[in-house]
Design a protein around this nucleic acid. Sequence first.
DNA 1: CGCTACGTTGATCGCACTCAAGTATAGTGG
DNA 2: CCACTATACTTGAGTGCGATCAACGTAGCG
Lengths: 249, 249
Amino acid sequence: MATRRSTPIKLENIEPQMCSIHTRYEILSRVPFFTQLAAKEVAKVNEMFREYGYKPGESIYFAGQPATHLYVVAVGHVKLVRHTLSGQDIVLDVLTPGEFFGTLSVLGSELYQDTAQAQTDCCVLAITADTFQTVLQHYPPVALTALNIMSLRLEQAHETVRQLSAHSVEQRIAAVLLKLARKVGSQQAEGLLIQLPLSRQDLAQMTGTTVESASRVMSQLQKEGFIRTGRQWVAITNAAELELIAGGE
Amino acid sequence: MATRRSTPIKLENIEPQMCSIHTRYEILSRVPFFTQLAAKEVAKVNEMFREYGYKPGESIYFAGQPATHLYVVAVGHVKLVRHTLSGQDIVLDVLTPGEFFGTLSVLGSELYQDTAQAQTDCCVLAITADTFQTVLQHYPPVALTALNIMSLRLEQAHETVRQLSAHSVEQRIAAVLLKLARKVGSQQAEGLLIQLPLSRQDLAQMTGTTVESASRVMSQLQKEGFIRTGRQWVAITNAAELELIAGGE
DNA sequence: CGCTACGTTGATCGCACTCAAGTATAGTGG
DNA sequence: CCACTATACTTGAGTGCGATCAACGTAGCG
């Protein structure tokens, strides 16, 4: 047998599309943003957020719309997609619970540059940019944390630029698989399973290539025994070798 | 005649490698960071900076070194270069007076990920990351401004990712030329001149291609009459047409 | 059970990389 | 001021990676 047939991914079914006010409190206090705040301050901030539920494939906002809100992922996964005139889409990032997206500033670009799309059932918390601006002004540590996060993201984006400029499709795919595994990997019978519905299309859009090329590379990697994969799922069975391919840097 | 022989670039010779304490004050108060601060606060911050001069090609810091300082460009241009194991270099950004680089946080990655290199004669102001952290804590508006700048940079990086994923070398070069022109362009007899020594090598490293490919594209663009170019300089003569090529988005 | 979306595989084509010469330009020292 | 050199730039020929087009397998779902 080469690969099992049904998806081994277990989606956490903690009220797929909605999270109670208590869950919200729980989540917000775990968000890097607010870990430095006292309990009652978190409670206060909590009230400023509204919550929304989305099903896989639904869009939270579209590129080109006025950028009015900041969002925090509560449950599930959200992907940020950038479009091209030619119709090609690029996945810039996949966000996990606790991460934020949307707009940070009242001064930034007036429109969303990306589309935010639910990758799984998910629940997000929303706050208007204005309101968040007052939060930033009231709680300076929050601004410092945000600054740190943005630094890390910029660093990641630069790394992506390097990959696209200098590495082959195989190297980029290996690198993306490792990155995702680090983010949402869990040890399973199949190997280090990426807990995310991940199509060839997604992979292609994350690495700036085509579905066909992604498929070829994945087939090759499986034939060599470094990964196991099926429809919408991937598990890594030989991370060390993948690191070598990725060009370990 | 196709193109003039000698470089039309005029380098501002305002004490190429050093800037007096007064020049520094002048510069700091124009830096986006500190425009919101009162005069005497700027003066106070000014004292926390040390200044350094560099000649073209000299490195301010190297990738891999401990990340200890935050820098502000005072005079000249600084490029951020990321290296590859294969020896290929990528230029992530070219910074103009008023822009910062180095490390923002005490918590960020411990090492510089890029090399900062003087593109022209230049003078930079330096502050330790720790000291700057206290500045951020003392002057919350500075943190908010920094946050905005980081947002814009992340946005730019994402745009670069899109370009690399979806656009041809010709499109990417056209886009980079326009971006540079917007940043350091000045209207001259030659056209919209990019006030920066810009080699084919630089151009290639900014667009993730090779010197040869960059050269071919530049020759083509000149033959079509959209640019005029020589050794280390470029002027745009038909921006509208370049926009079209870049795929205007 | 068939429909639809996802995935695989093959054949062909072209853009851009590589390797290799050759030309032009700035800077240097006689 | 001019030869000389180092560096930037150009151009050509050949190659290969990855995109494109096309056909076919396969899993999940109603």
